[in-house]
């Protein structure tokens, strides 16, 4: 009797819950670990920017002509810009804009794209034709060209940049979800739900959607990096955030006027953008390996 319980205890210790399993896979995946550490550090930098910045006053229209164009040093880690503002501090504040953009764009575009993809895959027929043809058209638009056109016509600022990117971003999610749902439609559980009299809404959002979650989370993580890149490119061309708000793309653009002598003014904010994108990409790649999804 006692041996039986011992055996049971041993068994219990050896079976992992699905959460433990996920954690185990995560710790075995260097790309996911490094990626999530970078992403966490970017979020921390953005949230606590006023406390972490070595020169918090540099975030605004601060001027310090004595220290203008100082190279990277112990005092100014990334050097200073053309009016003597600390580039490191401004980069931390710049992450606020970048992450704000990510949350704003993906918060709208992803649910929208998912809903359209679910509808196209689930209903098929005419609904599928209209949604997928429209998606095809949107995919043929060079996103940056379109976003440039939209922000320019609606006067350049952060909100309009966000609108422009959102208008173009949902297409990839629609395609992804559509493909998954199409493949799932012939599965028994969908059939069973239909026979049981479940509503369209229930089948789409309670039966089909959970099967898309792993693909969506990988896609969102990869997307976050590209939204940052996109926003930076827009403001680099002068169509995003307007000065003196500390924005990484704008900083690269201003700094590039002082190349090649004061190289840090363009390169350091550029590296800050690179760091954030790298983090989201590594995380996305790691998640993809962990959950074994194909995009």
């Amino acid at each position: 009797m006692s041996s039986h319980t011992q055996l049971d205890d041993a068994r219990q210790q050896r079976t992992l819950t699905s959460r433990q399993m996920a954690w185990y896979r995560f710790t075995r995946n260097p790309s996911a670990i490094i990626g999530s550490l970078i992403v966490i550090s970017v979020f921390v930098a953005a949230i606590f920017a006023p406390y972490l910045a070595t020169h918090p006053e540099s975030a605004g229209a601060h001027v310090d002509f004595i220290n203008r164009h100082s190279p990277p040093s112990w005092e100014f880690w990334f050097g200073t810009d053309n009016v003597g503002r600390d580039i490191f501090s401004r980069s931390l504040f710049g992450y606020r804009i970048s992450l704000g953009l990510v949350v704003g764009v993906l918060g709208v575009a992803v649910p929208f794209g998912i809903t359209l993809g679910l509808m196209a895959g689930y209903f098929g027929g005419r609904v599928e034709f209209i949604i997928m043809r429209f998606t095809d058209i949107m995919l043929a638009v060079p996103p940056l060209a379109m976003a440039l056109a939209i922000t320019a016509v609606l006067s350049p600022n952060l909100i309009n940049a966000m609108i422009a990117i959102t208008l173009l971003w949902w297409t990839w999610h629609t395609r992804l979800i559509y493909r998954i749902v199409k493949a799932q439609m012939s599965e028994d559980y969908v059939e069973a739900a239909k026979v049981a009299g479940a509503s369209h809404f229930h089948i789409m959002f309670r039966e089909l959607l959970p099967n898309c979650v792993s693909a969506i989370s990988v896609k969102v993580s990869l997307d976050a990096g590209f939204v940052i890149l996109f926003g930076a490119a827009l403001s680099f061309l002068g169509l995003g955030v307007q000065p003196p708000t500390p924005d990484l793309g704008t900083m690269v653009s201003t700094g590039s006027e002082y190349l090649p002598e004061f190289w840090w003014e363009a390169v350091m904010p550029g590296m800050a953008i690179l760091y954030a994108i790298l983090g989201f990409n590594l995380l996305g790649d790691g998640l993809r390996d962990m959950m074994d999804v194909e995009l």
């Binding site: 930076a232 680099f236 590039s256 190349l259 090649p260 390169v267 550029g270």
Partner: peptide
């Protein structure tokens, strides 16, 4: 190659 923004690479190449 994937994570470096085109304009940052362009500037680094110019430099």
């Amino acid at each position: 190659g994937v994570v470096i923004p085109g304009f940052v690479l362009a500037i680094i190449l110019q430099l």
